[in-house]
Structure formats: structure tokens, C-alpha cells
Amino acid sequence: MNIVRSVGGKLAGLVLTLFLASLLVFFSRFLVPGDPLSFLLRGRKPSPEAIAAVTEQYGLNLSPWEQYLKWIGGIFTGDFGRSMQYRQSVSEVLLDRLPVTLGLVIIAGLLITVFGLAAGILAAVKRGTWVDKTVVVTLTAFGAIPSFVAAVGFIALFAVQLGWFPSFGSGEGFWDTVRHLILPSAALALVYVVLIGKVTRSAMVEQLGREHVEVATSRGLSPAAVVRRHVLRNAVGPILTVSGMLVAGLLVSSSIIESAFGLSGLGSLLVQSVDRLDFPVVQAIVLLVVAVFVAVNAVVDLLQPLVDPRTVAGAGAR
């Protein structure tokens, strides 16, 4: 009963968040200087009839509220409106670009999980030693590198000097695509590897000082078993929470990386659409990012009771 109620509550919260986000996303357009009409007309001076036709076609003659209702109504039927720059439906434009970004985010996610956890676990287990210090200093240094600098650096080293990976484009077929996405994913992942590494380290160090770890040690368990079963296991909660928060950042950062590596994904589409005042596309992408963020964090919340049995679903830790 409790689970059903809490999932229901989560869903209601999710819908409310998305509704508020849609308001913000839609009406912010009216605060931005620039008229979509002038972009559509591209500096030409057409007849008033032509202007009226375009205005009619894109619904620009309606009041903002009517436009919003039309837009939001369309979304429920999968219609995000028409892109002004491509003159085709937004959904088609997005679906076209989605695979590249998805691939980028998935590979980056794998890299973050593997290298972030490994660095954090290593530093925590060897805390206070030179290994720990080296890991922490390296992480801090990497964390200070902006992703576009990392992108340029990776291209210079791995693509130009060593020639291991291509530096441009998204490739054909599965393996070629993966090969093309390795460098961009690594550049995207770098900052987040640092974050996850540091969170893992501090969560584990905190657990290492707990009495239950000493009890487990006193019972004659091997150090590896103690770390696995009592330290890492108990540190999963904070790591998971932080991971949820990172998802939105990952999607947004991908725009920079995609531009640097010449990939045509959602990120580069967002930048390009903002530039060209293609509001339907901008609105759709931003709403998508918000939806993914809210959904991922709702899932993280729902997982908490599995991670820590003291958390009653929906009631928070006590």
C-alpha cells in the first residue's frame, strides 16, 4: 500500500514539475529579443498576404496563452510543433539527432561509472597513503579542465598524434559509431569521473570510520569482504543520489562536446536552434532534458529503500 502511494506521489510530483517547467520554457521565449517571424522571412520583404500565411501556419497570430495551450495539447499527441529552420516537424528533427547524443551519454556514463568508482575505491581503501594523495590530486587537476579544453587536448593527442580514434563525425554502423564516440565521451566524462570519484571516496571513508566496519573486521572477515560488504555497499546511497543529479549536466555538457567533435546530436542542435531563434526546437529539447532529469531522480528515490532498508519509500531517511 505504502509503495503504491509513494509511487503515485512521485508521479504526481513529476507531472507538476513538468507542467511548471513547460510554462517556464514556453513563456521565456516572449522575454527573448528577436521575432521568430523575421527569421522565417529571412530578411525578404514578402507581400502582406505571405506574411499572414506564415503567421497563420506557425500560429503566431494567437495570444501567448492560446499558443501555449495549442503547444501543450500537441505534445500529448506527440506533436512538438514545426521547426522553423528545417521546416519539418520537431519530433522528426529530434529523432534524427537522438541516437548520437544517446550513444554519447551512454558511453560517457559507462566511463564515469568504471573510472569514477575505481578511483574513489582505490583512494578510500588506501586513504592517507601516497596512493590516496596521488588519486585525489589527479582528480582535482582533471576536475579543473573545462570539457572543451579536454576535447581539444584529446583530439591533439589521440586523434592527431597517435591516430587511434577519429576526431570528427559520428561514423557508420555500430562499431564505427562507437569508435567515433569514444573520444567525445571521454572528454564529456572527465569532469564527472572526478565528481563521482570524490563522492565515492568521501562516502567510503565515512563508512570506514563506522563501528560496524570494526565489528566486521573483528569477526575475522577478509579486508576485501569488509570493503565490499560493509563499506562500498553502505556508500551506494550517496553515490546514487549524486549520480541522479549529474544526468542533466551530462545532457547539457554534451552540446559543447558535440560542437567540438562535429557531431550532430541534440546538444549541437540546441545551440544552433537558440542561435536561429528556432523556439519550437529549443522548447522541445529543454523540456526533454527536464523530463529526463526528473524521471531519473524519481527512479533514484524509488531505489533508496532497496539501498537502505531504513528508508521507508517516500518518507526519506531517518
Binding site: 563506522r210 563501528e211 560496524h212 570494526e214 565489528v215 566486521a216 573483528s218 569477526r219 575475522g220 572477515l221 577478509s222 569482504a225 560488504r229 560493509h230 555497499r233 553502505n234 539501498v307 537502505d308 532498508p309 531504513r310
Partner: peptide, 27 residues
């Protein structure tokens, strides 16, 4: 050894059965 505070000394995210048996099973 029996420790002072069982609330702190028994891993809160594992079952009591696991706490009792892990040393025998793994060791």
C-alpha cells in the same frame, strides 16, 4: 568481541541473518 553500541555496530543495510553468518560462510 561484543561492542558498546549495537545500533552502530551492526550494519544497518544488511539483514541480521547476514550479520550472524557472514564470517562463517565467507571465512
Amino acid at each position: 568481541m561484543v561492542f558498546q553500541d549495537p545500533r552502530a555496530g551492526i550494519n544497518p543495510v544488511r539483514t541480521l541473518g547476514d550479520h550472524l553468518t557472514e564470517a562463517l560462510r565467507l571465512g
